[in-house]
Simulated assay, not measured.
Amino acid sequence: MVKLSNDVLRRIVFTNLGVEDHDVIIGPRVGEDAAIVRIGNGYMAIHTDPITGAVEGIGWLAINIVANDIAVRGIKPRWFLLTLLLPHGINEGDIEKIMIDVNRALAELNGSLIGGHTEITPGIDRVIASTTAIGVGEHYVTTSGAKPGDLVLVTKYIALEGTAVLATDFENELVRRGVPREVINRAKGFVKEVSVVREALEIADLASAMHDPTEGGLLQGLLEIAEASDVKLRIDIDKVPILPETRQIFSALNMDPLASLSSGALVATIPRERIHTAGVKLSKLGINYSIIGEVVEGKPSIEVVKDDRIVNEVNGFIEDDVMGLWHRKYGG
């Protein structure tokens, strides 16, 4: 699945949203991770997302991907609804494997599956899982809150999800191109690191904006913060955290890890006076983080810096490298 461009969203999707409801605080907008609806004295965060894949790991991802989008609102994901569209020929053992992974992910998040739908669907050859996550809180964080002077923080490492997808779905090609199998096997395990729920909830009270970079990777996630907040982000390319396995795999395929699936890396903008506290909180959780740049005034874009020199200016819409390769292989 590939995201529509921001232009198409604005012209076609966002102009057909039904009646206006004053309890909808944040509805469909570019870059915003989840809807926010006023309920009584609190707020409900709601988000839905589909993913397509093989049986292996899809149940785990189906829960964690949407949980991230609730957590970056500073709200704990609590309830989930799951729709499973299954190809003909799938057996009960495969369905059970998906649901065991779903249950394991829910148990780790202390969440509950409260409904959904499951069917055998004609015309598909892989599982499609569409999940809705819901949470309730007293406060919320947006993607649009970044202010000039804030610092840009990234947790863990970028392209963890993308690296795991490449290692799983393109293993033979990677071996053919000289990537050692031990590197590929380690990279497959990165799928276990896609959750940002713990760190997002831990620093929500310190962040001016938080975002979960998915398709288009870190660059698209940063662009969405810049556009939503009407600011420019100045990023030091040498400070972006990338694991050696990611560098090796992406290099072998001539792809850019900055423009590839990055679930697992939380992006947050933090006022300078709060950055030390945020670092202490993350360190106590055992989660590494990097300060990769700052928010500055200017037209929404990404200013990429290396050795104190501007080497690139990024704007527009980033096509995801991993998703592009995946669709060329599987024809979706």
Rank of each mutant, 00 (worst) to 15 (best):
S5L: 14
N6V: 08
D7C: 07
D7S: 15
L9T: 04
R10C: 05
R11A: 07
I12F: 14
F14H: 11
N16C: 06
N16D: 12
G18V: 03
V19A: 13
D33G: 05
D33I: 01
R38P: 08
R38Q: 13
G40D: 08
Y43H: 10
A45L: 01
I46G: 02
I46D: 05
H47Q: 09
P50N: 01
T52N: 00
G53L: 10
A54L: 13
I58G: 03
G59Q: 04
L61S: 12
L61N: 09
L61W: 00
L61F: 10
A62W: 02
V66A: 10
N68R: 01
N68C: 08
I70N: 00
I70L: 04
A71Q: 04
I75K: 14
R78V: 14
W79P: 01
W79T: 10
L84P: 09
H88D: 11
G89C: 02
N91M: 00
I98T: 02
M99F: 14
M99Y: 15
M99T: 02
M99E: 12
I100H: 05
A105H: 04
A105M: 11
L109A: 06
L109R: 06
S112P: 03
S112F: 06
S112R: 13
I114Q: 05
I114G: 01
H117N: 06
I124Q: 12
R126P: 00
S130A: 14
T131Y: 05
T132I: 12
A133H: 05
I134A: 11
K147T: 14
G149E: 07
L151G: 14
V152T: 04
L153R: 03
T155N: 06
L160D: 02
E161M: 12
G162E: 09
G162L: 04
V165A: 07
L166G: 10
F170G: 13
F170W: 10
V175D: 04
R177L: 12
G178K: 07
G178L: 13
V183M: 12
N185Y: 06
G189T: 02
F190D: 11
K192Q: 11
E193S: 09
V194H: 04
V196I: 15
V197M: 05
V197K: 07
R198P: 00
A200S: 15
L201S: 06
A204D: 12
S208Y: 14
G216R: 13
G217M: 02
Q220S: 13
L222A: 13
E224A: 07
D230A: 13
L233M: 09
R234C: 09
V240Q: 00
P244N: 10
R247C: 02
F250C: 02
F250D: 00
A252N: 05
P257M: 06
P257Q: 09
V267P: 00
A268C: 12
I270Y: 08
R272Q: 15
R274V: 01
R274C: 04
H276D: 10
G279A: 03
V280T: 13
S283P: 02
L285C: 05
G286A: 11
I287C: 09
I291Q: 08
I291F: 01
I291W: 06
I292R: 03
I292W: 02
G293A: 09
E294Q: 15
G298V: 05
K299I: 03
V304Q: 04
D307A: 06
D308T: 14
E313A: 07
E313Q: 11
G316Y: 12
G316R: 01
D320K: 00
V322P: 00
L325E: 06
W326D: 03
R328M: 07
R328N: 11
